Simulated scan of single mutants.
Amino acid sequence: MIVGVHGIRCYRYLAEAGTVEGAAEALAAEWAAALGMPLSTAYYAPLLHLGAHQGTADAPELLPPGAQRMLTDWVSALGAPAEVTMGPGTLPVRQAASWLAERFGEVARKVAIVFCREADTYVTDRDSPRRAAARDEVLRVLHGTRPRAVVAHSLGSVVAYEALWHRPVALDLLVTLGSPLGMPHVVFERLALGEGNEERKGERPPGVRRWVNVADVGDIVAIPRDLPSRFPGIDDHHEVSLGLVASHKATRYLARPEVVDALAPLLAAPDGA
């Protein structure tokens, strides 16, 4: 059994399916087709959804203040000059979004705005009920299905990493794809691993036997791309090329041989092997 933990822009599955169960099934079918293996998904998107505008409005100045700060910190980590992230009012966030579009394209700008809106909802408040609920939904699925592997994409890698520290689950393999876990100021310093675990940030979660990370060389979310530099608990790290337009797309990551090869032995071997 493999469980997938999704990233950003996944509320649309609920909008299309009409039920949480239907959304989880639709997402699982899409991921399974890309991976070429059966899986189920932990679907937490509705728990971070703030309203009808979320995921559709792409004006950076409409982001909440925390998300605006996140965006300017992000472009700073990507190498933007200081003048891009400094200025009065909403000027820095508009400059940051424009710099992203000029440097990486309009798709990257839109992805960054959606990511900041959803990530801000999750990471800004360590004690947020929404944050706890997202972790609990992942844990509910994991404790209910007892999978051998978890595949977590984008923001989902943050939710899964925290969840696996809060209530450990025995896993043969954790695979993170396009992970922002190490992104300075945006995610890394804001990770909340639970009481007694904060000093273990960067380690492999307890109960996880092996951790594989895959990052596209052009993925602006996977910063730093060399995630083991901040997370020495990673056993294997692969830098790949998915193509400029699809550099953060979950299904493109799932189809990579590095991901398939890591997971295939678990399906071939009997449970407990």
Score class of each variant (00 low, 15 high):
residue 101 A to K: 10
residue 196 G to Y: 13
residue 104 F to R: 14
residue 90 T to R: 15
residue 77 A to Y: 00
residue 112 A to L: 06
residue 89 G to N: 13
residue 145 T to W: 05
residue 140 R to E: 15
residue 195 E to C: 13
residue 78 L to H: 04
residue 140 R to K: 12
residue 160 A to Y: 09
residue 163 A to E: 04
residue 85 T to G: 10
residue 140 R to T: 09
residue 161 Y to P: 06
residue 182 G to M: 10
residue 189 E to P: 09
residue 75 V to C: 05
residue 103 R to E: 12
residue 192 A to V: 15
residue 133 A to N: 02
residue 76 S to K: 11
residue 144 G to Q: 10
residue 89 G to W: 13
residue 194 G to V: 05
residue 98 S to D: 11
residue 197 N to I: 01
residue 142 L to F: 08
residue 108 A to V: 03
residue 99 W to Y: 06
residue 196 G to I: 11
residue 79 G to L: 01
residue 168 P to Y: 01
residue 152 A to E: 03
residue 167 R to K: 14
residue 117 R to M: 11
residue 87 G to R: 13
residue 80 A to G: 01
residue 105 G to V: 06
residue 168 P to L: 02
residue 198 E to S: 09
residue 181 L to W: 10
residue 176 T to K: 11
residue 203 E to K: 05
residue 107 V to H: 13
residue 171 L to D: 01
residue 184 P to F: 08
residue 147 P to H: 06
residue 112 A to P: 00
residue 129 P to N: 03
residue 128 S to R: 07
residue 132 A to M: 07
residue 172 D to M: 01
residue 183 M to E: 10
residue 192 A to I: 12
residue 139 L to I: 04
residue 190 R to W: 03
residue 100 L to G: 06
residue 190 R to Q: 12
residue 150 V to H: 12
residue 88 P to Y: 07
residue 139 L to W: 12
residue 94 R to V: 12
residue 78 L to A: 04
residue 78 L to W: 03
residue 103 R to N: 09
residue 164 L to N: 09
residue 148 R to A: 07
residue 138 V to C: 11
residue 137 E to V: 04
residue 146 R to K: 15
residue 92 P to H: 15
residue 191 L to G: 05
residue 101 A to H: 03
